[in-house]
């Protein structure tokens, strides 16, 4: 598996990761390399654990009771184990940004949304916050649309704009990895196309892990793809290989739409 990516620089490496809710094991012995400044897609039928895996990267599971990690997720270049119980989940979340299925802007102004991450990190210098916010909005391709209405409520934006605002919000703090959890599932086709283009553009600056139900989307935006089924990693490879020459029967069946 790893050989495919051996020429790449790794940003993160999932090693023998298992995860359980109470007694129920939902991720079983997952191994997955995440290449630096590339897009890694997680695909698989509903309930296969792809979102659960994504939420391990920023320790979202720690918000809920009786969740248990085993194994390691190493974050490079620091070499720290993200899921180590000794590591404060808040510290992990400061390094790793996340965008959710449904656009979830805070009930605040557009500017307050983008600058939120900087504010909670205790940054007070307003010129710095302004520059960072502007840069993030530009990166998210939203600047031109909102530069004259930064102080209007974020909820006045359209769904697609709200989702790009959420991406900008995550980018403003220079995350080492950006997690996208089905970021276009609540959007119309035009907004979806806009965000897909954005994902490809962002690759040069940030490492992206995206969960998607949409196989075409995975094929369009990602460099490598992991196919999961029933909590197991069935196959991992370059996106091209997974979609044209899957090694596993189950992957082939899923890709060709025979189940899932």
């Amino acid at each position: 598996m790893v050989e495919i990516l051996k020429k790449e620089i790794l940003r993160s490496d999932v090693r023998n990761l298992s995860f359980s809710y109470g007694d129920k094991k939902v991720l079983k012995n997952i191994n997955l390399p995440i290449a630096d400044n590339k897009v890694t897609a997680l695909i698989g039928p509903s309930g296969c654990g792809k979102t659960t895996l994504l939420r391990c990267f920023n320790r979202m599971h720690d918000l809920y009771k009786s969740t248990h990690y085993e194994g390691e997720i190493i974050l490079f270049p620091e070499g720290i184990n993200i899921i180590s119980a000794k590591l404060d989940p808040i510290e992990v979340r400061m390094k790793i940004g996340m965008v959710f299925q449904k656009p979830n802007p805070f009930p605040k102004s557009i500017f307050e949304n983008v600058s939120y991450g900087l504010k909670v990190r205790g940054i007070r210098k307003s010129s710095f916050i302004k520059d960072k916010s502007e840069k993030a909005l530009k990166q998210a391709g939203l600047w031109e649309e909102v530069k004259d209405r930064l102080h209007q409520p974020a909820t006045s934006l359209s769904g697609g704009q709200q989702q790009r605002l959420c991406i900008a919000r995550a980018l403003a703090t220079d995350p080492e990895i950006l997690l996208l959890d089905e970021p276009t599932s609540a959007l119309d086709p035009i907004s979806t196309a806009h965000i897909e283009k954005l994902i490809v553009d962002l690759k040069s600056t940030v490492t992206i892990v995206i969960v998607t139900h949409n196989l075409h989307q995975a094929a369009r935006v990602s460099d490598s793809t992991a196919f999961m089924y029933l909590g197991e990693m069935v196959e991992f490879g370059t996106t091209n290989q997974i979609f044209t020459n899957p090694q596993q029967k189950r992957t082939e069946n899923y890709i060709t739409g025979r189940f899932g």
Binding site: N58, M60, L63, I90, E91, R93, M94, G97, M98, F100, K102, N104, F106, P107, K108, Y116, G117, K119, V120, R121, C166, R169, A170, T173
Partner: peptide, 23 residues
């Protein structure tokens, strides 16, 4: 989703409560 959104930004519980949930 607002709670998760704020926590995912690296906010603490208190920051989430006061800066997002209260408003």
């Amino acid at each position: 989703y607002l709670r998760e959104g704020s926590m995912a930004m690296g906010a603490s519980k208190a920051q989430t409560a006061l800066r997002v949930l209260y408003p």
